[in-house]
């Protein structure tokens, strides 16, 4: 760099920094979310920013961060200043609560257990369903190759693990022992355990491995839409689990940054007709009937069980199945 052009550069830098500093005075929210919500929150953020500006005249910028649900929760616990968290399962928000960042009883502060939309776990199979996969039982048949992420690291995988377990329990003569045997046989058919849901989708879709992918319903719809109905089909099992991805304001952060009002409004926006319509557009099951009716796809009417009714809540489910020495570890140590 020559001496002459050093001055303009300095000036430009100063101006840039001053402007950057100015932008900071506008309110900024950080939404820490899980993997497949990227596209949803891009749209939600744009819509909410416009609405907030119209309502209060104030500008707000919303940053979003995505990754595996557990990883994201850990980042918040370790100091990532999230104003709101929108994660895959309540267990992860509970972990943030344990770190005293979210007040106890957070799940009762917003309607519907703080879950503005729900989803479920379905099967994605190759066109024509060559292996004739119709229900959970088919996944444990010899010769069927099943792709799912690792339940130790992926929220989606935990939901599908528990869905498989619940299905086996509800079969005639079902018992805990039979459920364990069934899930064990199912995982014998799993050739690769990716760490996250998107990783598994890639293994199944791009790399062509496996006959069936256990996927979030919204990811399955997205895969079919992006890659064409001539390649994949969605199979809905006879019974699945009601996945409730919760949202929460991170009390300690919003009180420190003074962003409580806008953070609260942001989460409430998810329950508004506009927010519900966006959720439906991205293949989440909205809570509001009007949005459900206008959804771009027909959500199959499938019997959905909740974690609470089958497993007595996430803490108990985690302890029994995914903690060290739980049923998942037992499957692999046999």
């Amino acid at each position: 760099m020559t001496r002459e052009n050093r001055i303009p550069v300095t000036v430009a830098l100063t101006v840039f920094l001053a402007l950057g500093g100015g932008a900071l005075s506008a309110q900024e929210l950080l939404n820490v979310s899980y993997d497949p919500t990227r596209e949803l929150y891009q749209e939600v953020n744009a819509a909410f920013t416009a609405q907030w500006k119209a309502r209060t005249g104030k500008a707000v910028t919303i940053q979003q961060s995505h990754g595996g649900s557990g990883k994201q929760a850990r980042a918040v616990i370790d100091g990532l200043e999230a104003d709101v968290v929108t994660l895959a399962l309540a267990y992860d928000v509970d972990a943030i609560e344990k770190a005293s960042l979210v007040a106890p009883g957070w799940q009762k502060r917003l309607p519907q257990n703080s879950c503005p939309y729900t989803s479920t776990l379905v099967f994605l199979v190759r066109k024509g369903n060559p292996k004739g996969i119709k229900d959970w039982g088919d996944l444990a048949r010899p010769g069927v190759s099943v792709v799912t992420p690792n339940p130790k690291t992926s929220g989606a995988a935990r939901w599908s693990y528990l869905a498989a377990w619940a299905w086996a329990l509800r079969q005639p003569g079902g018992s805990e022992a039979k459920a364990k045997d069934f899930v064990g046989r199912l995982f014998k058919n799993v050739p690769v355990l990716d760490t996250g849901a998107r990783g598994s989708t890639n293994t199944f879709v791009q790399r062509g491995i496996g006959d069936v992918l256990l996927a979030w319903e919204n990811e399955a719809f997205l895969a079919v839409k992006e890659l064409g109905t001539d390649k994949f089909e969605i199979v809905v099992p006879s019974l699945s689990i009601l996945a409730e991805p919760p949202v929460a304001v991170v009390d300690k952060v919003v009180d420190k940054k003074g962003t409580r009002a806008v953070a609260q409004a942001y989460l409430e926006f998810l329950y508004s007709p506009e927010g519900q319509a966006l959720a439906a557009k991205h293949y989440y099951r909205p809570r509001a009937k009007e949005a459900l009716a206008k959804a771009p796809v027909a959500f199959a009417a499938v019997k959905l069980l909740t974690i609470d009714e089958v497993f007595g809540g996430w803490a108990a489910a985690h302890q029994a199945h995914f903690a060290d020495g739980g049923t998942f570890d037992q499957i692999y140590s046999r």
């Binding site: 595996g68 929760a73 616990i77 690769v192 990716d194 903690a323 570890d329």
Partner: peptide, 22 residues
């Protein structure tokens, strides 16, 4: 492939445990 007991490397076990808050 990250199969427990067979193809899981030690750094992955560390990550796995962190993600379970262990």
């Amino acid at each position: 492939g990250n199969m427990p007991m067979r193809t899981e490397i030690a750094p992955l076990v560390i990550m796995t445990k962190l993600e379970q808050y262990d």
